[in-house]
Amino acid sequence: MSVTSKKGLDYWLPKLVLSPTVAIAIIFIYGFIIWTSVISLTDSTILPRYDFVGFEQYVKLFQNPRWLSSLWNLVVFGTLFIGVCMVVGLVLAILLDQQIRAEGALRTVYLYPMALSFIVTGTVWKWLLNPTVGIERFIHNLGWESFQFDWIVNPDMAIYTVVIAGVWQSSGFVMAIFLAGLRGIDTSIIKAAQLDGASLFSVYSRIIIPSMRPVFFSAFIMLAHLAIKSFDLIVALTGGGPGNATDVPAIFMYQFSFQRGRLGIGAASAVIMLMTILAILIPYLYSELRKPKDA
């Protein structure tokens, strides 16, 4: 009797302790994913209603020019943000890996923006980029009066200011990932390549960078999901403007669901965003989880 009760406690205690977390996760993450999917199939407006209309909201969504332009903005922002972050992060990591002095301090400096929230980053860059108080005015005061840097108020260029702020915030983190990857490489490989006569450039381009493919993949996944769900940075920096010039799907979703009282179309846009992330994540998880069997 005592044996079974003891075994019972050992058996149940971890489950008991973990169950609230599991329950919360199931309800508030997966439950609401399902709920959102259901809502996206109804004609809900301000409040949820359960009159099912099939995929009508999705059809409406893709007929909405604002949604299409927000998708295009996401493509532009995502590509540039991921690309520039990777390049900047990799260059910083390679430079930091040359056994320089004060590496620890410099690493912290580059990593520090990561400690700020996107709201802070957005606000700071809003001021910096504002033509009347920021960089443009500073240069004017230095005496270069014709200098123009008004991207943030220019509808054609505003999306690039989001890229600038995003890169500033995230490239340090990418650098840290790459630096860890570089540190994982056996230094005698570099020595061997030197003896083989390879220049430093070809050591990196032909050996080190190709062998860091998994690291690139991780960095890409991290940046891709940051890009797709980017919301706070854009709200703080441009508020989606000027006009709708920096609209992205997350802002579209927020505005339609909670400000314009069109919950159905907002839910549909949220489901599309989830699908986009899954489209990137599933191949990644598949390749990651399959690997141990191969190796």
Binding site: D186, S188, I189, K191, A192, A193, S211, R213
Partner: peptide, 21 residues
Amino acid sequence: AAPKDRDIAMVFQSYALYPNM
């Protein structure tokens, strides 16, 4: 002289094979 100009080859303890090739 630079390592490559010394006409020597070296075998390392960890072998230092290029993992991507």
